[in-house]
């Protein structure tokens, strides 16, 4: 028994090494002075300096952040509505189709989503004159379409867990259903809304394929810039960028974990155990 546990833990350790080693190497080599990424020639911050003067990359990053934030906000609203529908409306007509449409974006290959949305935008442009050029709007709409499915998964799980008796109590005391939803339900699912927002934000910030399809001239997102410089091979500036992203994500996840825990312990609305 004991020997089996050890071999299990060995596989586990190997798995974690496999998952983390590549990113750790990127971080280490971002401080390397040499342009040859694999030869260590001394500590240097010069790639970070170059990164900060890379106008094209900074503009792209700013565009990506704006798209990601807009996308996340819309996706949280739509995803929460969809989660409400699935958890609170039982077996409504067309539920199977609804669930199918909500699952599809989770697995559908990016190339299909990207191509089909581009063809839609072209057709819409021809028939109704919207969206009037491709760029910020088209990328954001495309991102909302797949992000809302992820948000729905996160919010749905939380919504199914919360204690309904709190809502029932408020209702019995004569509160309007909308008031109950806003004052009782929303605070209870707030942690899920936060993680849903962050998830949608990162998904958007990360997308290369869909954005490449639905973008137009003049709208270049961060992944598009990264992709075009990475295709040429290894670039120390991208290593520096990777390090910044990893640090940023680590801080964000730590904050999210702490807030969720704080919210979770005080406000899950779970019945206190009586013993």
């Amino acid at each position: 028994m004991r020997r089996q546990r050890w071999s299990l833990y060995t596989v586990l350790a190997f798995g974690y090494a496999f998952l983390y080693l590549p990113v750790l190497l990127l971080i280490v080599y971002s401080f390397n002075e040499s342009r040859l990424v694999t030869v260590w020639s001394g500590f240097s911050l010069k790639w970070y300096g170059e990164l900060l003067h890379n106008r094209q990359l900074l503009d792209a990053a700013w565009l990506s952040i704006r798209i990601a934030a807009t996308n996340a906000t819309f996706a949280v609203v739509l995803g929460t509505l969809a989660a409400n529908a699935l958890v609170r409306h039982g077996r409504f007509r067309g539920r199977t189709g609804f669930e199918l449409l909500l699952t599809a974006p989770l697995v559908m290959p990016d190339v299909i989503i990207g191509l089909s949305l581009l063809l839609l935008f072209v057709a819409l442009q021809q028939s109704v004159g919207w969206p009037g050029g491709r760029g910020f709007t088209t990328i954001t709409v495309a991102h909302i379409t797949f992000s809302l499915a992820y948000v729905a998964v996160v919010v749905r799980a939380r919504l199914a867990q919360i204690d309904r008796s709190l809502e029932e109590a408020a209702m019995d005391l004569g509160a309007h259903p909308l008031t109950v939803y806003l004052r009782i339900t929303l605070p209870l699912i707030a942690p899920a809304l936060l993680s849903g927002w962050l998830l949608a934000f990162t998904l958007s910030l990360d997308d290369l394929v869909i954005a490449s399809f639905v973008s137009g001239p003049g709208a270049t997102t961060l992944p598009m810039v990264v992709y075009s410089s990475v295709r040429m091979g290894v670039s120390p500036q991208i290593n520096a960028l990777a390090t910044i992203i990893v640090v940023f994500v680590a801080v964000a996840v730590a904050i999210a974990a702490l807030t969720t825990r704080g919210l979770g312990s005080t406000r899950t609305g779970r019945r206190p155990t009586r013993d």
Binding site: Y16, L19, Y20, L21, P22, V23, L25, L26, Y29, V37, T38, T202, L205, D206, L208, P223, V226, Y227, V230, G233, V234, I238, L241, A242, I245, V246, V249, A252, V253
Partner: peptide
């Protein structure tokens, strides 16, 4: 720890393998 890498850029994590 399994979920965490998912939060960093997919493109950059794939790129990391070029150097390796």
């Amino acid at each position: 720890l399994i979920v965490l890498p998912f939060w960093t850029s997919f493109l950059i994590r794939v790129y990391a393998w070029i150097g390796i």
